[in-house]
Simulated assay, not measured.
Amino acid sequence: MKLIESGMVLLDLDDDGVAHLRLNRPEAANGMNVPFLRALYDAVMVATGQRGLRALLLTGEGSHFCAGGDVKTFAAKGEALPDYLREATAWLQNVAQGLLALPVPVITAVHGFAAGGGGLGLVCASDLVVAAESARFMSGAVRVGMAPDAGSSATLPQLVGVRKAMEILLLNPTLTATEAAEIGLITRVVPDDELQRTALDMARTVADGAPRALGATKRLVWSGLGHRVEAQLPEEARTVSELSGTADAREGLAAVLERRRPTFTGT
């Protein structure tokens, strides 16, 4: 059943109860701007309201799962960037909270890059993550003079430990799928041509299970750290907005667009 047939986010629901949520901005590597984030939040809410929902499969169209924020849009905002990012961060946090609170497991399939607060944040807010062998993971926030969001400053340390989270967030290594699996960031690595089949099989396996037991198990696991995630969201939003108004943030965005190394001055 087609629930959202066109636009930047697509959603359908199979007869077996698996909802397929697809990021559909391939021309921008599924980069996130405010309209995209609003559409994504709406799709999560539509999925939440489906009586027959038993699992949600999250994928990205095009060459990448999600390259993070839409850098071109951010750079074009100039001095209005803090206000724009305040709105964008709010929608992204709503999306992350929606996935965490979804009463069924979320299975995410990653190909290409999962980067930034958007890409890595969605990975961290998922229950099970399957990645293609060629997939890559990166934070990237401090690279453009900003801070992590989507709750990842709380979820990432829980997934991989504080020391490894600090390395990922501060040094911005590009992790291979194998490295991501070894540290517990993702669930499984498969050959590229088996990604979609494996992720769908996993979603169908979940959908075959006892819905209330699976939903309760997910809730219990996340609630063990959920209060910490929720408490972190306002501080993340404030920090991202504050940093986006700095000269370093403007320099970081310009450096990405100009494909050069940024020169940060601390202002």
Rank of each mutant, 00 (worst) to 15 (best):
T187S: 12
V106N: 03
S63V: 06
G68P: 02
A216V: 01
Q158D: 15
D16R: 08
L56Q: 00
V71A: 12
V160H: 09
E133I: 14
N94S: 14
L159E: 06
S63L: 07
A237T: 00
V18T: 05
A181L: 10
T217P: 00
Q232R: 13
E242C: 01
E167V: 07
A154G: 07
E179I: 03
E133T: 13
Y84G: 03
I186T: 04
A147E: 05
A47R: 07
G7A: 11
G226Y: 00
D15G: 08
G209W: 06
G140Q: 09
F137H: 09
A177L: 13
T187H: 13
R204D: 05
G60S: 11
G98M: 10
L220N: 05
A76R: 11
R197V: 10
H111T: 07
V190S: 03
S134M: 05
D127W: 03
F113A: 07
D14L: 09
L13R: 01
K77G: 10
T59Q: 04
T155R: 15
D14C: 14
V34S: 07
A237D: 02
L102H: 03
R204V: 01
A147I: 00
C124A: 15
G60E: 10
A101F: 01
A147H: 01
A213K: 03
G117D: 01
K218H: 13
E242A: 08
L159D: 14
R250T: 13
G69M: 09
N172D: 15
M202L: 13
N94P: 04
N33T: 09
A237L: 00
G116Y: 05
A135H: 02
L185G: 03
L100P: 03
L100Q: 14
G226T: 06
L169F: 12
G215H: 06
L100C: 12
L102R: 04
L214Q: 15
T187L: 04
P234K: 04
K72Y: 06
R259Q: 15
A237E: 00
D15T: 07
G118I: 13
D248T: 04
G266F: 11
V256D: 00
R163M: 12
L40H: 11
A115V: 11
L3P: 03
S126F: 01
P191Y: 07
L171A: 13
A181K: 15
R219N: 14
G49C: 12
D149C: 08
N33V: 11
S223M: 09
P26K: 10
T73L: 05
L220F: 11
S6K: 15
P82M: 11
T89M: 04
E230L: 12
A177M: 13
G245M: 07
F113H: 13
H64S: 15
A28H: 12
P105E: 09
I168R: 02
V130I: 11
E258D: 13
A165E: 02
V110S: 00
D14I: 05
H64I: 10
V229M: 03
V110E: 02
V130M: 06
L185Q: 06
Q97W: 01
L200M: 10
F137K: 01
